[in-house]
């Protein structure tokens, strides 16, 4: 009988972040992956859990098949991590909201003005049920253009931001 744990061993390949290397090829705009003396060119890194486990990464090859899993990319050497995060940051543009400056309700949608780690932004949300998703202490906002914003910890927000968010939550 194959248990799910055993199936993990046969269906997933894990790469030790200390034994692999990434290199960003600016010319081809591709990411090269070095493991066990082999080079995989143009690998696609995917964060399967971009919000709940952002350091867990699957590498996929061009055919769309999974190559391997790196459970925690923080274990990579600095240049590899930089190269990988450069690609990932472009792929996963999820601004983290630091402060909520203002929320108004127009009767049709909410207009939110927030300060994020990427700068100040104003966006519209259609309604609470469709646009706001809570994951423990995290809050994910989906705006009307399907952009995603993240509040990493509601509890850690300043009181003014919390007060503004009360209009929405």
């Amino acid at each position: 009988m194959t248990s799910i744990r055993e199936f993990v061993k046969t269906s997933l390949r894990f790469a030790d972040p200390r034994k692999v290397r990434f290199e960003y090829d600016r010319f081809h705009d591709s990411l090269n992956f070095y493991v066990d003396g082999m080079v995989y060119k143009n690998v696609e890194p995917v964060k399967p859990f971009p919000l709940s486990a952002p350091y867990y990464v699957i590498l996929r090859v061009e055919s769309g098949k999974d190559l391997c899993v790196i459970r925690d990319i923080r274990g990579l050497d600095e240049s590899s991590r930089k190269a990988l995060e450069y690609v990932l940051d472009r792929k996963y543009f999820i601004p983290v909201i630091r402060r909520v400056l203002d929320i108004t309700y127009t009767g049709e949608f909410f207009v939110c003005k927030v300060e994020t780690d990427k700068g100040v932004r104003t966006f519209k949300l259609r309604g609470r049920r469709r646009s706001v998703f809570k994951m423990d202490d995290k809050i994910v906002l989906f705006d009307m253009d399907e952009n995603i914003y993240l509040i990493e910890s509601y509890e850690k927000l300043d009181p003014k931001s919390k007060e503004e968010l009360m209009k929405l939550l």
């Binding site: 799910i4 997933l12 709940s52 867990y56 699957i58 899993v69 994910v140």
Partner: peptide, 25 residues
């Protein structure tokens, strides 16, 4: 997390999940 992915692979769900904007999230 590994078990979640393995289970999704058994169910042939892994690929479509990775196509979603927030994947498993």
């Amino acid at each position: 997390l590994d078990e979640i992915i393995a289970a999704a692979k058994i169910a042939a769900a892994h690929d479509f999940i990775l196509q979603k904007p927030l994947c498993y999230d």
